[in-house]
Nucleic acid binder design. Structure first.
Lengths: 194, 194
DNA sequence: CCACATCTTGGTCGATCGCCCAAAGTCTCT
DNA sequence: AGAGACTTTGGGCGATCGACCAAGATGTGG
């Protein structure tokens, strides 16, 4: 972001950001400390406040970056599918597959909670989610979902995926939502009064 | 639970449990401290460790109790509805209405995350969720959902509600999922290969 | 009325917290 | 080589943390 000329500082920054994202998942947002994140990143504790000013700001920036990356991966996989049903199924599958090795949705949830208490986090997260929903809505619209419903369907899909991922934390046997069939509800019948 | 003869001790216990549940919502699981919860409950800090042994155990017990109460309220409201579509709609509405005054789903989410790190919490939460899903499945089965699908639908409804509540934290304008219409997907067509 | 279990008080322990800063180190220019 | 900007070091500040405990208060059954 800043016009710093030194390469070393940037490496430290990214190391701290990565360590912070890891620790939020492992111990929870409120339990990440200056010293623990510095140790994980392999740098001295003082650097946390030199580069980010406060732990809160480091966590905010780290979560936003990691989530942006995840959204990129998910929508990338989605856009590789032409068929609507096939794409949605692969989206659910990728969450199931992602979990054991890299429980990224814990980071999503932690960030949601932090956003409910910290307006700065909320602002950062809002942007990420909005972009995710817009890309999802665009993909849906190109594949047969009526424009009027695309945004609504996108919000539903995003929320369902998060809820599914959340419940899987507790119970790995939770049946996956048949997203493809459910989304068909919108494309087909439409018999609403309001 | 225990055969303690004194009434005073029980009052202290319940006061601490209530204060703990409040603070988990307000500041997050990891940020609830011995002294803050004691102050909120109007008792001395030492009592936390006398009655519960540790902060972790207090939070575990408090969350489980609060969640049990919430499940009771939700399923109670549900079982007051005979019609399937009407009941599901009221379920979604009750979440929307509940939120501004008493964001209980933040407690749900906090507990989910804590459960992913603490087996004791996981055990307590698992029981609550299981009971919720069983009652929901029973209600669905009595109202036309095929028995073979009732459990699957119940899991889907529970996960969708949590996901919806989670996204509402960030964006109050998230459109509500048309649960009644979606659940109709199961009762009606059935064209799956696996 | 007195023993007795239960509950409460008030304080202390070592550890850890976020944050800060002066001094030293490391670069990139001119 | 010397100046100046950037980065790192290592220590230290007061505050707060979870946990613990001896002594006092409270209420109950004999």
């Amino acid at each position: 972001m800043e016009p710093t000329g030194n390469r070393r500082g940037q490496e430290t920054r990214t190391a701290l950001l990565g360590a912070a994202a890891e620790l939020v998942v492992e111990v929870g947002w409120g339990a990440v400390s200056t010293r623990s994140v510095a140790e994980r990143a392999g740098v001295r504790p003082g650097l946390v406040h030199y580069h980010f000013g406060s732990v809160r700001r480091l966590l905010t920036e780290a979560s936003a970056a990691a989530l942006e990356e995840m959204v990129e991966a998910l929508t990338g996989e989605l856009e590789a599918s032409d068929d609507l049903a096939h794409g949605l199924t692969r989206l659910v599958d990728s969450i199931v597959a992602l979990e054991p090795t890299h429980p990224l949705h814990l980071l999503v949830t932690e960030t949601y909670l932090a956003a409910s208490r910290d307006p700065e986090v909320a602002g950062a997260l809002r942007g990420v989610v909005r972009r995710m929903r817009e890309r999802l809505a665009g993909w849906l619209a190109e594949r047969g979902v009526p424009d009027a419903h695309a945004a609504e369907v996108a919000a539903f899909v995003a929320a369902t995926l998060d809820g599914f991922a959340l419940h899987r934390v507790l119970d790995a046997d939770v049946p996956a939502p048949p997203l493809a069939r459910l989304v068909g509800t919108w494309t087909g019948t439409e018999e609403e009064g309001s």
